[in-house]
Design a protein around this nucleic acid. Structure first.
Lengths: 236, 236
DNA sequence: AATATATATTGTCATAGTGACACTATATTG
DNA sequence: CAATATAGTGTCACTATGACAATATATATT
């Protein structure tokens, strides 16, 4: 049999295949709190529960799982571009009542000032991580958020990635607070500042911000390569 | 409609779904060379070309993509356990002639002295990476090996993971050669030894190995947690 | 206007892991 | 016993970090 004949006779519907989805933990920083984007489910399964944005890969629209994730991110946040990273692919016969299902999990870091939640369509909400009840979410999405959060935490120890969550201009103290929140521990101001400055990850804007007493200098991200790692991770 | 009714009426075969596979880059160390396991394809598509071990997730046998990978590893190498890590999930409409396909890529590190290739069934071969012609492989498997290798290289800068490739007993010079091969650069013997010893990743066996002149002490892995990272990555 | 106070920012020093490279140790070979 | 090859160590400079004291600059208070 030639390859042509083989392909003409091949029918994927003859086989048992898993459900195949893409899910995303979209993180943002709102009033000094880490938030994650949730979408309300109007339909079965897990009807009337909150879930991560995501869904089936559209074989006609999507050229890759990344493309599917970007499409869904755009639908939910209006953002055409944002930091998006694949975390892990998780599958089991149990996680979706419809059958054996596989999801490619991503996380996205967005600057909340650039987001416009859609006014029509599905209900979406920013949920502070501190108020999240993981068990209440649809499917295993509580666990997925946990996996994504662990990855973000790990990244924060050896890259400046969380800077993606900051608005256009920010102070180093604000940035330090963000890292402290992600890492769930306090950092030394001097060590943190040396680290950030020597990596050339930010530059002064010239402006300053008064948040009480001494004004803090404002910085912007220099948009260097996200893959540039610090020469040492923060100590545990 | 109740959830029960919904599920009874749900038929995955109504939808266009991607082909869903698991592929593995199984690395081993043979005669001081990094090798990768290849399987000969008897059937279309990509008939009569070499490919990575892998294939469709079996919804009846496999409880997770990891389980599918472990099952295939056992089939091809006889190994019931080995270091196995998910790398990335890659999909596109083009990579498989049968249609839109998604593969969860893993890499495995095996001790070649514990491997027994199956005598019956598919032809399998250990291919030295130095002799590999990536373009000649089936599908995009050349690229997959490259992705897996990049991950292994990255890991070698901040973990002792490659130790999984070594036999039960080995000398530090041999281990250093392995790291040098993976990283594609020379390392300082003193720095390397300090690093390995202070992390308590190996212990002396008491024996020694004569490979010419002064005998080298033999060590074994202490099987500490694979997730314990060095406090600093090797400099680039 | 001087002082208290809160937050921002910097100075200083000890510590620890790395790279570089010279040096020592221990076997075989002729 | 000397030459040699490979194994393994001593030493030092460098650098990023943690710890914490010290300084800077604004507002609030008197």
């Amino acid at each position: 049999m030639s390859e042509k004949e083989f392909l003409e006779n091949y029918d994927i519907h003859e086989f048992d295949v898993p459900l195949c989805t893409v899910d995303m933990a979209v993180f943002s920083l709102i009033e000094n709190q880490l938030n994650v984007l949730l979408v309300y489910r109007d339909e079965h399964p897990c009807k009337e529960r909150w879930a991560l944005p995501g869904g089936f890969i559209d074989l006609n629209k999507d050229k890759s799982p990344e493309a599917a994730a970007h499409r869904k991110l755009k639908e939910k946040t209006g953002l055409g571009s944002a930091y998006l990273e694949q975390v892990e692919t998780i599958g089991s016969p149990k996680r979706d009542a419809r059958g054996w299902s596989l999801t490619v999990l991503y996380y996205a870091l967005v600057d909340i000032t650039r987001v416009t939640l859609p006014k029509v369509g599905k209900k979406t909400v920013w949920m502070p991580l501190s108020e999240l009840k993981p068990r209440s979410l649809a499917f295993d999405h509580g666990k997925l958020i946990d996996v994504a959060m662990k990855r973000l935490r790990s990244k924060a120890t050896y890259t400046a990635l969380p800077i993606e969550l900051m608005p256009a201009e920010f102070t180093l103290t604000e940035l330090q607070h963000l890292f402290e929140m992600i890492l769930a521990r306090d950092l030394q101001a001097k060590a943190f500042r040396n680290r950030v400055m020597s990596a050339n990850m930010v530059e002064e804007t010239g402006g300053s911000k008064i948040s009480g007493k001494r004004p803090a200098k404002l910085y912007r991200s220099t948009k260097v390569d996200r893959d540039t790692y610090f020469s040492r991770p923060l100590q545990s």
